[in-house]
Nucleic acid binder design. Sequence first.
DNA 1: GTTGATTTGTTACAATATAACATCTCAATT
DNA 2: AATTGAGATGTTATATTGTAACAAATCAAC
Lengths: 166, 166
Amino acid sequence: MSDSTELFAPHNHSLCINTALTTASQLCAERGVQLTAIRQQVLELIWADHHAVKAYDLLERIKPLQSAAKPATIYRALDFLREQGFIHRVESLNAFVGCNDLKSAHEQLLLICKRCENVEERHADSVMQALAQELALAGFTAHHQAIEIHGICATCTQSNNTPSLN
Amino acid sequence: MSDSTELFAPHNHSLCINTALTTASQLCAERGVQLTAIRQQVLELIWADHHAVKAYDLLERIKPLQSAAKPATIYRALDFLREQGFIHRVESLNAFVGCNDLKSAHEQLLLICKRCENVEERHADSVMQALAQELALAGFTAHHQAIEIHGICATCTQSNNTPSLN
DNA sequence: GTTGATTTGTTACAATATAACATCTCAATT
DNA sequence: AATTGAGATGTTATATTGTAACAAATCAAC
Ligand SMILES: [Zn+2]
Ligand SMILES: [Zn+2]
Ligand SMILES: [Zn+2]
Ligand SMILES: [Zn+2]
């Protein structure tokens, strides 16, 4: 039903959400850190779909649940979720997206569709290997990478009338 | 004097500046667009060194020359310089850096040193080829890429006492 | 129950960026 | 020379994104 070229074709998105939340919960327990209500709610809101979400949008969406929420509320939760590797920041959008591989540390390639706004995370080993060689050649020691590609995804290219919704 | 592994080792930086300004001027003439005083001054300020410069820093620095300068003054100049391909935006820093290859359209890999803050632009063909393959595999049509690596550059690794200044 | 670390509340503000409309400049046309 | 129109700049206001600082609350361990 879903091969690597159509990650965002119709799929059982509750599975995405459940996996993300369950795994995050397990990892927090293992690590002795707290997945508090606020943090979990923010993570859930981020996983509402596969879009990148902006901090102030999260703030609006969490207010029904946390009436005292202020910008710091959101940014603290985002900081925590990033430190734990549960989400990625999309630098070129000032926005945040759920990580789809919580089990392994990784650098990621983000494919950002301008049409449906879905963000697909790929590990793209061949790219990362070429990059590692290039960095070695340059004598550069990498600490953090942001590789973000904006364009049109496969699903939108195929059906260029109705944007996919998940 | 300067091979590809030490672009920012001591070098004749006036040459960098002169090349950037002269070439930009030529290209503007060819393209029938105006490299106005403000635009040229912003480009010069960006090329003061190899750091990424923030818009509001540019605003402060241009005020002695353009006392009426406001945020829009800078952002308009930056928009123009980006459209013409004279500068790149560093998404992960909200900052701007001069392009070091005005003659050819290109995607670029930016190596951002946390220590000396220099930004080295590399074209990294092998990375771009691997990336093109990965995008083809994903059925993704790229319109714009941001590939930004944060870490420690070769020069700073070698002499880890005094940050290089250019 | 006390303690100490973590989390959250709260206020204020900093930093980054854009919208909207008025004015200016300057070259082409009349 | 006056008119005009496009591009550039001036100007004001505001939107968006993100942090600092300190107080209060929570919670787990002792
Ligand atoms: Zn991830
Ligand atoms: Zn799409
Ligand atoms: Zn230089
Ligand atoms: Zn360039």
